[in-house]
Design a binder for these strands. Structure first.
Lengths: 193, 193
DNA sequence: GTCGTTTTGGATCGATCAGTACAAAATCAG
DNA sequence: CTGATTTTGTACTGATCGATCCAAAACGAC
């Protein structure tokens, strides 16, 4: 055969994900990616076609991991209202770290930085959004049957509403609001269901 | 004295604002700024210290313009609920253009792209957020006195909630949701007040 | 007009950008 | 071992990055 790879491709994608997540697509140089992954340029360009290709892999991994976690929560047997509350709590936990990293959410970062001028990336984000929306909608519909969620409102609309609340909390966190304010938004959002 | 300037500084800042608004800070090169403003590099670097400085000027102008418009609406004599509805309608109008530009909102774009690694910019965003929040809070408190807004909830918390709804709608729009979904989010948000 | 001052265009700076060329190193088949 | 194949490190590509230099041009003061 031939010389085997010395590195794990998934580990490299993970490291690249961290870099893109922290600094964004444009502000992450190929040199940064070498340092983050611990690989040489040749290894990166041999395994991945380009910076853009590596980014798509990294984004895909992020979306898969995060969405799987959300879907798992939404398919659990908690009351629907509790599921949403937990989702929002997780957002607060991530966003109010702020001192540790302050890198936010790669979905939101990418949607804002790239979606408008990168159709492929936009398509991937849409797909992931749909996936989360389906799981949320199903959970809310189930909650409506249980009497946990107001049945008068359309579940899908409520799902969009919750998704927007999450994105909004992440934006507001970047604009500097504190944890108490985030908790207020979360409470108000859950109360609206 | 000396040779006078051939260009209007405010016009240049406006043009730069459009460029940054469309492509983001990192993805806008100084060459792009020359083309957008119609100026030579010397003129730009003579009038502004750096790309970063020009960006701050552009951001300042954007925030001032947009916030003034929002504050004007919030200080009008419409019912409070109607004020919020109008704010959300404006967002939908801007975000569902999508075909025309799809550049979203410079506040959100900047909060997500830069705030975490640029303290000066973050401070400016915080200041602007506070300004909008004060106006929103005052409008909602007034609405509570009129019985237009649920008095049981804290007006400031509701203001944060509305601000987050706006940011969230903008993120969701970037993730590809359609106008009808945005309208559903807006309705749900107003219903929660 | 001349002088002093500022703006302007164009050339250019070193640094960095994403990406590539190439040969040495490393592996396995035989 | 040799030969085929792939990975790896290093040097390097042309392009572009943000920013600066400098001299010509354009004005007001006088």
């Amino acid at each position: 055969m031939a010389r085997p790879r010395k590195f794990d491709e998934e580990r490299a994608v993970d490291a690249a994900m961290e870099a893109f997540w922290t600094a964004g697509y444009e502000a992450t140089s190929t040199q940064d990616l070498c340092e983050a992954t611990g690989l040489g340029r040749s290894s990166i360009y041999n395994a991945f076609k380009s910076k853009h290709d590596l980014f798509r892999r990294a984004l895909g991994r992020y979306l898969e991991t995060k969405s799987a976690s959300v879907v798992e929560l939404l398919e659990s047997d908690l009351p629907a209202r509790e599921k949403v509350r937990t989702m929002l709590e997780r957002v607060i936990e991530e966003e109010s770290a702020h001192a540790d990293d302050g890198r936010g959410c790669l979905f939101v970062n990418t949607a804002v930085e790239l979606a408008a001028r990168d159709a492929e990336v936009a398509r991937e984000l849409e797909r992931d959004y749909r996936r989360r929306l389906e799981a949320l909608t199903a959970a809310l519909e189930s909650g409506q049957r249980d009497g946990d969620i107001e049945a008068a409102k359309d579940a899908r609309t409520l799902a969009h509403f919750v998704a927007a609340a999450i994105g909004g909390m992440r934006v507001s966190a970047r604009a500097g609001i504190d944890r108490a304010a985030l908790e207020g938004i979360a409470r108000t959002t859950v109360d609206a269901l």
